[in-house]
Write a protein that binds this DNA or RNA. Structure first.
Lengths: 159, 159
DNA sequence: TGTAAATCGGATAATATCATCCAATATAAT
DNA sequence: ATTATATTGGATGATATTATCCGATTTACA
């Protein structure tokens, strides 16, 4: 019998990142894309560009602004930018950390609090390998680099 | 200023797996450990062994039983087992799939529905690399193998 | 100086996930 | 047959995450 007949109460969506982080990353890539051209972008424009809920995106952008990852301006002509000189310095790890904290660096795959190298859960080393690679990817991938994918229409940010 | 002064509304816990999957994996490892010795284990014993909420664990074990990953017995002397002959066949991917579905194989890292090889999001290929490794790890790691870690007290399942 | 356009920030609502409760069902043992 | 012990499954509650609303604040510009 096909799986679709089992409609489970647990049929969740698997997410590597939280929605907040997803929006944060997409927004930052869009801002990087525009900031390279010296353009500023308002909240509404960001939300439209990445197809995200406006008010929720505002919260996410606030967090990024507080952490100095992006810069916000109030008043008319206001909006968000990433300063050109910091464009190459903003990595995905900065964004995820600003939004979801750094539990990504600590957590046990099986949710065990006291799991560590000396007292590992059964999945510890297999999991560590994956997480280290994820961490490495986040720390070495800049939003500037990802924004390049937008330039020639090779990548997109909307559903 | 230190990060801890920013108490964000988004301060989430990063989880590679859902709680349901965490409990499912831990339970399956424990059952594998006992089943190897020919022992059956009741819901309460499982929950105690892996330090999980009893009723919630019941739901998770039901899902695993429905999918044929574990076998349940009702009545006195009832409980759960993994048949010895299937012990080496149960992989983490089976458990995660039974509980969280197979979105782990499809989802885009940035949450974009129409993201694929031909129309990739900016993070597509970096993300694919990580996910493929996670997938590979889940598909090749058996609960039997993980249960071995318990035998000499080298690993544990409680917090 | 007034006004309009923008972000900020607190409160609240909606949804998903995690967790519990309890009656129904199955079954081993007396 | 009866009883006690176990899983099953439906309903409900609690918490976390996602999303919205709206007044306050900032600021460019007429």
């Amino acid at each position: 019998m096909s799986d679709i007949f089992f409609i489970s109460i647990f049929d969740t969506n698997y997410n590597m990142f939280s929605k907040a982080s997803e929006y944060g990353i997409r927004a930052a890539i869009h801002l990087a894309h525009l900031s390279k051209k010296g353009e500023r972008c308002s909240l509404r424009q960001v939300a439209k560009a990445i197809d995200s809920p406006v008010a929720f995106t505002a919260k996410v952008l606030q967090l990024l602004a507080r952490d100095g990852i992006i810069v916000s301006f109030q008043g008319p002509t206001g909006g968000y930018e990433i300063p050109k000189e910091s464009l190459s310095l903003v990595h995905l790890s900065d964004i995820v950390k600003a939004i979801d904290g750094d539990s990504i660096y600590n957590g046990c795959g099986l949710g065990l609090e006291s799991c560590n190298e000396k007292k590992p859960c059964p999945l510890h080393f297999q999991f560590k390998s994956i997480r280290d690679e994820l961490k490495e990817m986040l720390q070495t991938t800049s939003v500037q680099e990802l924004a390049k994918g937008l330039e020639y229409g090779m990548a997109f940010l909307k559903r």
